[in-house]
């Protein structure tokens, strides 16, 4: 059937009996969850979520793969990615130096849209499946080329245990401890 309008009407305001009945019904539901609560709260940092591989989290550069095309810096909608010029040893001509450009990221600005990862023609950038790192100062959030190539450590992995959420018909989301650690 194609989409259609369904006109409905409110239930009429009931009398005393209706009122008492619906009050009791509300109480029963309340008591049900008081006795058997279905909690999905994440006890961060004692627990931390393991996201699926497609999660758009922190970004890492594979410098050897990068062809310096600057597409990532051009596509960035918040100007978080910038190209820097470095002088490095030329792998093709030993002993000689060459100038090359590589991207660096500024996490003060990044909105994790993932455009840069999607636009890179050689897959030199990839996402990590997490998002929870804090920096001590704003300056630290502007990664250097070295830092941009390292997968950052997730501090919560030291103190917490990983959990995954699963869909469940009776409780919505169910939190489960992930087997085998991180």
């Amino acid at each position: 059937m194609p989409p259609r309008v369904a006109v409905k009407n409110l239930k009429k305001g009931g009398g005393l009996f209706e009122g008492v009945k619906s009050n009791i019904e509300a109480l029963i539901v309340g008591i049900k969850y008081f006795v058997d609560p279905k909690r999905m709260t994440l006890l961060y940092p004692k627990e931390y979520p393991e996201h699926r591989p497609g999660y758009r989290g922190f970004i890492v550069l594979k410098k050897d793969v990068c062809i310096s095309c600057a597409a990532c810096a051009r596509v960035c909608p918040s100007a978080a990615m910038k190209m820097v010029r470095v002088t490095e040893a030329d792998p093709r001509e030993p002993g000689k130096a060459r100038q090359k450009q590589y991207p660096v990221i500024n996490y003060q600005r990044c909105i994790f849209c993932g455009y840069c990862v999607d636009v890179c023609p050689v897959e030199a950038l990839y996402h990590l499946p997490f998002h929870d790192i804090t920096y001590e100062s704003l300056a630290d959030m502007f990664l250097t080329l070295e830092a941009f190539q390292k997968e950052p450590l997730r501090p919560v992995e030291k103190e917490g245990s990983p959990v995954v959420y699963e869909f469940d018909e009776s409780a919505g989301l169910v939190k489960r401890e992930k087997k085998g650690g991180a």
Partner: peptide
């Protein structure tokens, strides 16, 4: 237009 769904409308 190909999906089957209702658009609920209340008069009150």
């Amino acid at each position: 237009s190909e999906l089957d769904f209702e658009v609920p409308v209340f008069e009150e």
